[in-house]
Computed example of a mutant assay.
Amino acid sequence: MPSSTSSSDPGSAPKGIVEREGALPAGLRLTASDRPGQAQPVPTRDVPAQPWGRIALGVLAALVVGGIALEVNARERIGLHAGDLDNSEISWSNEKIRAAGAPVAIVGDSRILFDTDLDRFEALTGVRPIQLAIHGTSALTLLEDMADDKDFNGLLIVGLADTMFFQPFDGYGGYVKKWHEFRAPYRVVSNEIDHMLQRHLAFLDSNYRLSVLAHRLDDDFRPGVEGPKDDIWKLQEVGEHRATYLWDRVEYDPAWRARTRWAWKGFKDPFPYTPDLIAKGHARAKAAVDKIRTRGGDVIFVRPPSAPELRVNEEAQVPKAKGWDVILRNTESAGIHIDDLPGAKDLPLPEFSHLGRKCATVFTDIYVRKLTELTPRLQLRADAPPPLTKDYCVPTT
């Protein structure tokens, strides 16, 4: 029976309406009443003719211009550089895998991370160490992780900041205890794509994502709660295989340098370093070193520099005689302390805790030469470059 609102008889259809969908005059909509027997289909409308090619070119041009503007802003105004790679848990896990069977690996906090020039290390010894140090992390946590790695039997260089080594928590690098969770294929592929783009584009720096910048617009949270001002903002640049350096803006921008110094809060930790806490740290360190040596590896400790403004508080909480000296004695390990390196003691630390990039090369040159005297696992190459001095990184007046 014909519908009361429309008819299957072409002769009864409204003028200009035909039965076959898609054959409507341009711009005329076909509704449900024109299609009897169908369960309320979505009305359709013809797509009007448009200059789609020119529209696509316009969108592409806008994207290119916008991308160029972002890149120019990132490089010229912010001081970012292409090739600065995000240092994620996945990046660390990549190096963890490479550490299996490696002759030398480095663990510790951000000081040994920032202050070791992997290129200089390799130029001096012919060996490129695996960089496993993590900022804001106890070197003890990473030492224990390597002790549990049955595939590592090389030389482990443990860089430490006295207070951070004995702190009662892991720090940012607590993820090392579950690093296999970051090996999902989609995570690894995503990380590789991210790095591929960052090798060419500076504005992709994760420290300058919109969500991060929006968070920093808040002056502070409620009193007594740490907010954006207490965060450590961009501080580092990361190259291939986690080769890490202090961001050069920290050196040349007084305002950025000042806020970074303020964020350290003088290394005045809010919890007490009791004799019991320090003793537990020593026991854990000895157990870890013994594990590594049992399977043929070895451990050497390195204490990078910190400025007097921080060192005074570090020494007050964990004196060298109760921390560093006991570590070496209990573990029967060799060690290189900044106090024992006259050529590196007066290197400038822009924000009190880390060396600038060129001075990190000087420190690396000095402490690696010392390493070759302390262990037969490393030897100075016959064609090693000549020694560096402070003049390499400090302008002469």
Rank of each mutant, 00 (worst) to 15 (best):
A56L: 10
K322H: 07
D9E: 09
G16T: 04
D162A: 15
H241S: 10
D9S: 06
V107H: 03
D339Y: 10
A334W: 13
D115K: 06
E95P: 04
H135I: 13
S88P: 04
R183Y: 06
P275H: 07
D109H: 11
A334T: 14
A13L: 15
V368A: 06
A287P: 02
T5E: 14
D391K: 06
A184R: 14
G58K: 05
E314T: 11
T5Q: 13
Y175C: 00
G37M: 00
I278Q: 06
A184V: 12
S8W: 11
V250R: 00
S190Q: 10
C393E: 00
R45V: 13
G22D: 07
R369P: 02
L60Q: 10
A56I: 06
F169W: 07
L341Y: 04
M164Y: 07
P2A: 13
I130T: 08
V394M: 01
Y208Q: 03
R293T: 06
K177L: 12
L347C: 05
P350M: 02
A105P: 03
I157M: 09
H282C: 00
T274M: 02
L328Y: 00
L328P: 03
D253H: 04
G159K: 01
R199Y: 01
S93G: 09
K358I: 10
E237Y: 03
L277I: 00
S333R: 10
A344K: 05
Y186E: 15
V212A: 14
G67E: 09
D84S: 08
Q198M: 12
V59T: 08
W324P: 04
K268C: 10
S8N: 13
E76I: 15
A105E: 05
R111Q: 01
R381C: 06
L347R: 01
L210P: 07
D117N: 04
N94T: 13
Y208P: 02
V289T: 01
R54Q: 10
H241I: 08
L210W: 12
R303I: 01
W247F: 00
F114H: 12
D269Y: 15
R111G: 08
G53N: 08
F152Q: 08
P103I: 08
R249Q: 13
G67Y: 04
S333M: 09
L197S: 06
D383Q: 01
W92I: 12
R261D: 00
H180W: 09
V238M: 00
I366K: 03
N330R: 15
D46M: 11
R242H: 00
A69Q: 01
E192G: 12
W92V: 14
A133H: 00
S190A: 13
M1E: 12
L60G: 07
A307C: 08
V299S: 03
G239Y: 04
L132C: 03
Q40T: 14
H180K: 09
A147H: 03
D109R: 04
D276N: 08
A360I: 04
E351H: 00
V104M: 06
Y245L: 10
I366F: 03
A283D: 15
G281I: 06
I90Y: 04
P342C: 01
G67R: 03
M146R: 03
V225N: 09
M164K: 06
F221L: 15
P386N: 00
T5F: 11
G154H: 04
R257W: 07
I300K: 04
D383V: 00
K178C: 02
M164C: 07
Q379P: 03
A243N: 12
E95I: 07
T396W: 05
A334H: 15
A74L: 12
F221W: 12
